[in-house]
Design a binder for these strands. Structure first.
Lengths: 316, 316
DNA sequence: CTTTATCTATCTCGAAACGAGATGGCAGGC
DNA sequence: GCCTGCCATCTCGTTTCGAGATAGATAAAG
């Protein structure tokens, strides 16, 4: 329906008006502003009709400004400067993002990732305060769904990870106490039943991932300890009381120091993806966006520096 | 063609954004601003995409503002206040016009009009400085055509006066020295040849107006003096050296003081219009417009107060 | 006096923008 | 499971915009 409302100055009209005054003619201003002369004529006319006063004196040599026009010129410059400052301020906010970003991260991935990530954010995004919440993946999934974090590092075994970014791919392996069998580089899934296991509890992502594959292959496991504490599980293995099935990120440090050994599981290889999820509400936040872009870089650096036994996904 | 240009904030978008933030939800703002909720959603989205940052956090209870949004809110309020002040300042300029207005006025009309007009402008339009330029009508016509004045009081004998305003109608009369014949109230055009005349020079409007009518009626006049100075002509008549043919406005004062007498010319009556012309370039000037509206009032007051022997034109 | 050049105002038309209304998706409350 | 409230998206009719053409006015040049 026809919009019958009171006159409101439009930014474009002000820009055209300033352009015309500065050029001294509509025709010159048209060339400068890259707009048709007729469009300038019409818009300035609309300003004059809106204000109810003449802003320009027109003659064959061009235009000059009236007293009212002079007032408007001054005011228009102030307004456009304010808009320019506004755009600069908000754009700078994008260029140098600041504020708090919260990220949930599983205990396993946190063991290789949390330190380097905090360091990277501190050095490359100094105005961002990264709050990292470590936890077992079950609760993390729930909390992320509840919107508790801006970002979350999660695990997925399916090929499809929706809109999440794949950070890395890991392979589950048998974690062996030092000096104990097996001494080969790899072990078949069907042979795992020979080793007593300390594993996370039933609803744990890791537990379910492995259990699904074992069941699919008609195998069984000898679960002796169910503990929802990664460090406790690792201690049990280090003390020779049991074995475990984990991904390399969980025991990267202990393995590199000879406190445990890892033996590759084959037939089949059990893999999973480490993914980065973003809360849809925060997708357009410049701070969240900046951290989101930084994490893959940190992961790549860790993997390529042999600080994390995982593979980087192919980029498409 | 597609307009591919960089992002420029639009006033409407700022108004919508402020409205949404203040309402706390798009839906409530839609009711308040009388705009569809979807339009608000789209416009705020465009602001976010333009700035490259998220301005609002949306959830099921409505919206809250981000840090960037808070900055924009503050800035937008400043911008809209500037625009509001601009509109108020320029609108006030219309309501209380100010500045200089120039008016050309013939010597004849100036004699009855200039004083009262200057007084009226001073009292009713105190912020306007009226510059009055008096002259013979020939040069005045030229100067008005050249754009020297904003306004001009001119004479016309034709019925059609184009876009000019008719201020008054006057009848030419014989100006008689005191104590000399004729002593009747009127004289026929055919009998004017008996009186030696002091009149303006050939290219003068008055001279041409009367000469045309005299020629049309096959009469002749006894022109003894040709002087392009109204006061000189009047002095010649007052001293009894000659008669003249003028309009009442020219000798209103002298006639009222008995220094000259006026005798109506009939068969035919010779009339002319006193008109007000406006320079088209200045038509939209509030100051010129205000003076333009004031002059007819001053004229009407003079005529109705018997300070000017003329008739007010019928209003249609 | 005629022609040329320059400038503004107006008109037409196709493209873009705008907003209303409808609809779908999501989440919380009952 | 249904209802309510809110936001995002889509469709369509209307409005606005600007390009290009053209007319009118005026001063300068020939």
């Amino acid at each position: 329906m026809p919009r019958v409302d009171f006159f409101i100055v439009d930014i474009r009209q002000l820009r055209y008006f300033i352009g015309v005054v500065e050029a001294g003619s509509f025709t010159k201003a048209a060339a400068t502003l890259n707009v048709a002369q007729s469009a300038l004529s019409l818009h300035v006319r609309q300003l004059e009709e809106g204000f109810g006063t003449q802003l320009l004196v027109r003659d064959r040599t061009g235009v000059s400004v009236t007293a009212s026009g002079d007032k408007l010129l001054e005011r228009a410059r102030v307004i456009l400067r304010e808009i320019q400052l506004t755009e600069a301020e908000l754009t700078n906010s994008v260029a140098a993002p600041s504020g708090e970003v919260t990220i949930g991260i599983p205990s396993g991935a946190a063991r290789v990732l949390s330190g380097p990530l905090l360091e990277s954010v501190r050095s490359e995004l100094p105005r961002i305060s990264l709050k990292m919440i470590e936890g077992m993946t079950g609760p993390l999934e729930e909390w992320m769904s509840a919107g508790r974090f801006n970002l979350a590092v999660l695990y997925r075994t399916a090929e499809s990870v929706g809109q999440m970014t794949v950070l890395a791919r890991e392979e589950f392996c048998l974690v062996v106490p030092p000096g104990q069998a097996p001494f080969e580089d790899s072990i078949r899934l069907a042979d795992l039943h020979a080793f007593p296991l300390a594993v996370p509890m039933r609803n744990n992502n890791v537990r379910r991932s492995v259990a699904d594959v074992v069941a699919q292959h008609g195998c069984v496991l000898d679960v002796r300890f169910e503990v929802d504490s990664l460090s406790t599980i690792i201690n049990i293995v280090m003390e020779g009381k049991a074995y475990s099935i984990l991904t390399p990120s969980a025991i990267q440090k202990e393995a590199s120091q000879g406190q445990v050994r890892t033996v590759k599981i084959i037939d089949p290889v059990i893999t999973r993806s480490v993914v980065l999820a973003v809360n849809p509400k925060d997708e357009r936040s410049p701070a969240v966006s900046a951290v989101r872009k930084l994490i893959p870089k940190v992961v790549r650096t860790l993997i390529e520096g042999k600080h994390w036994s995982a593979t980087v996904p192919d980029r498409v």
